[in-house]
C-alpha cells in the first residue's frame, strides 16, 4: 500500500508527458520529412527545369547563329553557335546528372539524340557553300531538327514541372499530417486532464473531505468514523489509522 497513491499520480503525469512527447516527436519527424521533400523539390526538379530553360535559350541562340551563317556572317555566326553549344552542353550535363523521376533517363536520351542530329546539320560548313542562302534547306531540315530538339527539351521540362506540382500537392497533405499529431495530442491531453482531475477528485479529494466532515460531525457515539473509501491506498490507510486512533482513545478514556 505504501506509495500507491504517489505511483498513481506519477503514472498520470507520466502518461500525459508520454502523450505530449510522442506528439511532439511525431510532429518534428513529419516536419523534418516535409523539409526534406521541400529540399528535394528544389534540388531535384527545379534544377532540371532551370537546365531545360538554359537548353532552350541556347537552342534559340544557336538558331540565330545559324541564320547569321546563312546570311554569310561567318565569324559572328560561328561565335554565337560556339558559345550557345557550350551553354547547351553545360545545361544538358546538369540535367543528365540529375535524374530523379522514373523514366527521366529516356527523356534525357531523346534530348541527346535529337540535339546530336541537329548539331550534325549545322556542324558542317554553311557560309561559303551552296547551303548559304538556301532557305528551303533551312526550312525543311535545319529548322525541323531545331523544333524537334526544342520539343524534347520541353517534354523533359514538363515532366519535372508536373512532378514538382504533384510534390507540392503532396506537401499540403504532409503539412496537414505534421499538424495532426499536435492537434490530436491537445485534444487527448484535454480529455486526459478531465479524466485525471475526475480521478484525483474521486479518489483523493472526496475521501479527504469525507474524513474531514466525519471528524467535524464526530460526537463520541461510536469508536468508528464512517467514511466510504473506494481505493486501497494511502487514503484508506489514513482512514484506517484514524479509526485505530479513535479506538485507542475510546479504550484509554474507558468509553463504551
Amino acid at each position: 500500500m505504501k506509495n500507491r497513491l504517489k505511483l498513481k499520480i506519477l503514472a498520470g503525469f507520466g502518461l500525459l508527458v508520454a502523450m505530449l512527447a510522442s506528439a511532439g516527436a511525431f510532429s518534428i519527424f513529419e516536419f523534418y520529412r516535409m523539409s526534406r521533400s521541400l529540399n528535394a523539390l528544389i534540388d531535384d526538379n527545379y534544377k532540371t527545369i532551370v537546365a531545360s530553360r538554359a537548353m532552350l535559350e541556347a537552342l534559340e541562340r544557336e538558331d540565330s547563329g545559324i541564320l547569321m551563317l546563312m546570311l554569310g556572317q561567318w565569324d559572328e555566326g560561328r561565335h554565337i553557335i560556339g558559345s550557345a553549344d557550350s551553354a547547351f552542353m553545360h545545361a544538358f550535363i546538369q540535367a543528365e546528372n540529375n535524374l530523379t523521376e522514373p523514366n527521366e533517363g529516356a527523356y534525357v536520351e531523346k534530348v541527346r539524340m535529337s540535339y546530336r542530329d541537329y548539331k550534325t546539320l549545322w556542324e558542317r560548313p554553311i557560309a561559303g557553300t551552296e547551303r548559304q542562302g538556301d532557305m528551303l534547306w533551312y526550312q525543311h531540315e535545319l529548322h525541323q531538327a531545331f523544333l524537334q530538339t526544342k520539343a524534347e527539351v520541353n517534354a523533359l521540362m514538363e515532366l519535372n514541372q508536373q512532378s514538382m506540382y504533384d510534390e507540392a500537392t503532396l506537401l499540403e497533405a504532409k503539412s496537414k499530417r505534421a499538424m495532426m499529431p499536435g492537434i490530436m495530442a491537445i485534444l487527448s491531453a484535454i480529455l486526459f486532464s478531465i479524466m485525471f482531475n475526475f480521478f484525483i477528485s474521486r479518489y483523493l479529494v472526496a475521501p479527504l473531505r469525507e474524513m474531514s466532515g466525519a471528524l467535524q460531525r464526530y460526537n463520541f457515539q461510536s469508536p468508528e468514523l464512517k467514511v466510504n473509501i473506494r481505493s486501497n491506498d494511502e487514503v484508506r490507510a489514513l482512514a484506517d489509522e484514524l479509526n485505530h486512533l479513535l479506538r485507542r482513545m475510546w479504550d484509554k478514556l474507558g468509553l463504551k
Binding site: K8, A11, L15, A18, F26, F196, F199, N232
Partner: peptide, 26 residues
C-alpha cells in the same frame, strides 16, 4: 507506408487513455 505515423499515434492515444483508468479504479 504513409499511414505508419497516424496508426502508431492512434495506438498510443488509445493505450494511454485506456490504461489510465485501470491504474486508478480497483
Amino acid at each position: 507506408e504513409t499511414s505508419t505515423i497516424p496508426l502508431l499515434f492512434s495506438t498510443l492515444v488509445c493505450v494511454i487513455l485506456g490504461i489510465f483508468p485501470l491504474i486508478f479504479v480497483e
